[in-house]
Each structure stands twice: as structure tokens, then as C-alpha cells.
Design a protein around this nucleic acid. Structure first.
Lengths: 209, 209
DNA sequence: CGGAGCGTTGATTAACTTCAAGGGCTGTGG
DNA sequence: CCACAGCCCTTGAAGTTAATCAACGCTCCG
């Protein structure tokens, strides 16, 4: 009924259109959901971190590619028995609805980012999201020594930018003293308030997950 | 239990953060879901057409503004009794899940559009969506005499563009013979294939709703 | 006739992409 | 231990797209 699967960085977990034989939960690692245009331009439409869920009740296929970014371990269940379980336990159905609505809110916040934010605001929003999600997952609680789980190129695909623009804007925020880099993949937030002001969001929130 | 409400164009149906006292279904007209940055830039994150649903099981507030674009009539139910009804009739809960997942797919297609498509591709995608949605709603079946439910400015907010760019690209597609304008709010599609090719999507779909 | 709302068009500018080159790790093999 | 290749990142310069700024046209309506 329950089994674990592992994937190497860059390995595709599911292709768009694939049959969903399994539903799964991310145990370890980071994976991306992405969509691609005919000529190869791609846009990440979601990021899976540990505890996130793959699969959608009543759907047999996925509408995007799912790719391992780091080493990923999934905890998988066969779809059919899982869906029967949903029928009998309304508590789980409710939880899945909750997940879908959270993803929907996150997607809509990201639409605002993609459609209206400047490169600088996009980067600031992304970093702020990392602070928040890292803390939620309890890996670290003090905004210092955060990990960038993505390369510059992957960040660009997430934010609708090019990798050069990502590099330039990250360094701009660094030069302004908002963040500091430990190495290329590790940073700390020096001035969280200034970072938030650079996101363009209002003071009280509306923060994407 | 059930009642109708009407709104004039431009009237706000719900503000972001408002209590959801009601859930509702759109009977007539067009409404927008939109988000706004601190300095006033706005991005439409969804479009409500007849038969679309407002309200989310388990959520007490809305995360975006809902505004009437045309004259709108809603069919409203008190939220509390409606949620009790969900508990007892799993069929409805299932339908709501279906709706949420459809919206999620649409939101992700729109992320690809906002993040990676050119102005021309955005406009072509928008027009193609109008063809498809108009046909689905059975108002018209032959791709001619379609209605633009939005002003240039509103289209711009939907596509993450400015109104000038919308105007220029619409006229560009007209001059290339893909579409023809009856008047400012009515057009017909002359060459649906060419229009599709201008969207940048692959041949087989992945079309936003 | 005058004004408001919406749309078009042109000129200029700004932001981001594209193109190009080089730098700095890291792992591997001689 | 060093040389070298590959990968990722940075930086600079040029090019492009769409935004901005500005003016004008059309239509409806009082």
C-alpha cells in the first residue's frame, strides 16, 4: 500500500499527461511543477517542499511536468485505494480541499508577481517566501543561514526572468545590505523589513506560500 | 435560504478580507477577481462568467477583490447552511473539489502566460479563450460575432499589459487578417488556426479555461 | 456645444533580454 | 599536487519589447 521512491536531481518524476498511478507526499527534497511553450520557454508553476502533496482527487493525469531539483524521496500510495479511502473518511477529503485552496491562493499571488512586479520585487518576494517557508518547516528559525534550493536558472524559471537578471538583482539586494551571501547557495537576511518593503506588497500580508 | 442580488458595472461585490457571509453562483454578467499592489498596480487573477461559483468551503474571507464588470446577477446562499449541506451530501463536496481543481489548472496556465508569453501571444491566447468559453456557454457556436466583455484597460489588467499595448496588438492581429472588428466590443475570428499558432501553445492544448 | 469615457496612434524611455566573455568552484585524472 | 573540464555564476555591452508620456479621434449624452 505504501512505498518510498527516490529521484536524482534533474530526474523527471512525472511528465505532463502521464497517468497518475500514485498519489504521493514529499518526504525529502525539492521538486518543481513546470509548464513549457512550444518553442521551449518554460515557467515553473509551483514548488514542492517536504510535506507537500502530489495528486488530485478525481484526476487521472497531471497537467505539468514534475521534476526533482535536489535528491527527492516520495512516499507513494496507489491511487485507487487512496481514492476509496477518501470516500469513507470525509476528514481526508476536507484536508485535500484545504490543500487545493491553499495552492490556488498561492497561484494567484504568483500571478500578481508574474504580471505586475519588477525584477527587483520578484526577487525580494522570492527571498521573503524562502524565509517564511523555511521557518514553517522548522529547519531554522532565525532568518540567518537560509538555503537557496534552486540555481539562478531555476529561480529565473520560477519568477519569469532570465538567469542574468536574477544574478544582477540578487547582487543588487546584497549591495544594498538587505542580505548577505555565505556562499552561492546560502544567505542570511540582514534587514527583513527592508526586504519586505522591496517586495511591493502591502504591510499586512497577502504573502504567497 | 436562496436570494438574488444585482450589481452595477464597476461596483465591488466583495473586498479582499471581507467576511464571506454568502456563497453564490453567477447567473448573469461578468465579474473579475483582482489583486492590487501597495502602489496601485493591479492584476486580474480570474474572470467569473455565468455558472461560475463564489465561495470556498472552510474559508471565511476572500483573498482578492471581486468587482462587477457588466451588470451582474448573483444567486446567493447563506454560508453556514450551505456548509452544513456539504457535510451531509458528499456529492456537492466532490463537485466543489472539481471546481477548485479547474480553477487551479486555469491559474497555472495563466502563470505561463504572464511569465513567459509576449504581448502578441497573450492577446491571441485571450481571444482564443473567449472563443472557447463563449462556445461552451452556448451563446454562440460559430466563432463569429463574439463579444469582448472587457474594456482595453480591463484586458490589460488581465494579461499583465498596458492598455496601449492591448490596443496595438489587437489591431496588429486585425491587420494580419486573423480577426475582424464589427465594432469596438464585437469581433469575429477569421482564421482560427492562425490565431492558435499566435498563442505560442502547442497544437494539442493545455488551454486555460 | 461641451464633456466624459474609451480607444487609437506616435515618440520617447526604461527595463529586461540577449549576446558575449570571463571568473571561480569542484571533481577527476595524470 | 597540479592541470583541466564542466558547471554555475557574474559582469559588460548591445538590442528589443513593452511601458510611459502625450496628443488626438470617436461616440454617446446632457
Amino acid at each position: 500500500m505504501k512505498m518510498y521512491r527516490s529521484y536524482k536531481p534533474g530526474e523527471t518524476i512525472l511528465w505532463r499527461g502521464d497517468d497518475l498511478q500514485f498519489v504521493a507526499s514529499v518526504v525529502k527534497g525539492v521538486a518543481s511543477l513546470s509548464k513549457t511553450l512550444e518553442d521551449g520557454r518554460t515557467q515553473m508553476v509551483g514548488l514542492l517542499l517536504p510535506s507537500d502533496f502530489i495528486g488530485r482527487p478525481g484526476r487521472e493525469t497531471v497537467e505539468f511536468d514534475i521534476t526533482a531539483i535536489t535528491d527527492v524521496t516520495l512516499c507513494c500510495f496507489r491511487r485507487k485505494p487512496f481514492e476509496e479511502m477518501i470516500q469513507t473518511t470525509p476528514h481526508i477529503a476536507q484536508r485535500l480541499m484545504e490543500i487545493a485552496l491553499d495552492e490556488l491562493d498561492a497561484a494567484r499571488d504568483w500571478m500578481l508577481l508574474l504580471g505586475r512586479k519588477t525584477a527587483r520585487e520578484k526577487i525580494a518576494t522570492f527571498l521573503e517566501m524562502l524565509v517564511r517557508r523555511t521557518n514553517v518547516h522548522g529547519i531554522d528559525a532565525n532568518s540567518s543561514d537560509l538555503t537557496l534550493p534552486l540555481t539562478r536558472d531555476e529561480i529565473a524559471n520560477y519568477l519569469g526572468l532570465t538567469l542574468e537578471t536574477v544574478s544582477r538583482q540578487l547582487n543588487a539586494l546584497k549591495n544594498e545590505g538587505m542580505i548577505r551571501f555565505v556562499d552561492r547557495r546560502h544567505f542570511e537576511v540582514v534587514d527583513l523589513l527592508a526586504l519586505h518593503e522591496a517586495t511591493g506588497d502591502d504591510a499586512d500580508g497577502g504573502l504567497p506560500v
